[in-house]
Design a binder for these strands. Sequence first.
DNA 1: CCACCGTGTTTGCATTTGCAAGCAGAGTGG
DNA 2: CCACTCTGCTTGCAAATGCAAACACGGTGG
Lengths: 179, 179
Amino acid sequence: MALPKVGSIGEYIREQRTQAKISLRQLAASAGVSNPYLSQIERGLRKPSAEILNQIAKGLQISSQALYVQAGLIEDREPDSDVLTAIRADRNITERQRQVLIDIYESFRKENRSETPAEGAWTTGDAHPAAESPGGGTDSSPDDTPSPEDRVTTPEDGGSPKAAAKPKTSNRKTRRTDQ
Amino acid sequence: MALPKVGSIGEYIREQRTQAKISLRQLAASAGVSNPYLSQIERGLRKPSAEILNQIAKGLQISSQALYVQAGLIEDREPDSDVLTAIRADRNITERQRQVLIDIYESFRKENRSETPAEGAWTTGDAHPAAESPGGGTDSSPDDTPSPEDRVTTPEDGGSPKAAAKPKTSNRKTRRTDQ
DNA sequence: CCACCGTGTTTGCATTTGCAAGCAGAGTGG
DNA sequence: CCACTCTGCTTGCAAATGCAAACACGGTGG
């Protein structure tokens, strides 16, 4: 594998650490990871998992998001609409309320997005067995699904957003060649 | 109990998946993970790493941050200031510039926070990399790809506020987390 | 009835993470 | 000179991730 470069995450961590003038062992201790492992991470020999990354971020007292971005784990340009940021930044609501709002908003976004392609296509007679598409995207009937375990989504209003089926072609590719 | 509760991340994923009316295999395919693994993730039998989590988020077309928050990996409490959210929400700057701004801001925060009693720590003439004012000469390169070797640290100015965190905590034993 | 296609699940195995223990130097000073 | 402490790095090894293949169950229809 040769581990070409798992991204500059290691460099970034070492950068932040040396800048903070703390030793590898100190950071490892405060981050709760072992010193050798941190060493390997910093030199790109190991690819830390999210937990470790989070702990390192805490140990460095930097933003986890910054680390995730550096690790290329969040690089996907999220729809950074200020709505979501406003929701996340708002401190006058509880976490649950925040989550509900985010869920609703994302459901709306997803719904809108899956309606973009030309209608039909996946409703044609080619019998997509799994998709089956009850109602499809146009009617957007809110109460067509039994909703197995409705936990997070419990808005009082009945207009819960239901996302339309995703006409993703059944790509059989499972093996992902990465890294 | 052998498998610790990894949080409701699996539940959340399954929730989103069923909401989107896509099958487990479909999501696994579009996310680039194997079906059985996704099944185990959804039931909390496995703890997906950040990459897998990111892939799943992409497959679900939902926010990665939402997943990370659900996974308890982002804490969601760091960006408690609208400054950061404003920076992140601003779309008139490149990713690089945004990162620089965030780094600077975090450096300031860290400086303020670690400047508890006993001042005279940051005056030791160390150079703080991120806390450099990019000035007007910021590269307006439309390229927003985080280059690996191009670290944000480019100290050239000496008159910027320095942040030197000199934690009094001496070496601390590496705590081991049972697991 | 049983082949076929869909759903999600379980079973072994390769690969990897992540750590405890030990190694190689650089200061410091008794 | 050697003991002590710091720095970071290398070495095996337990445990986990993550996947391919096979399993169990349900519906269609030939």
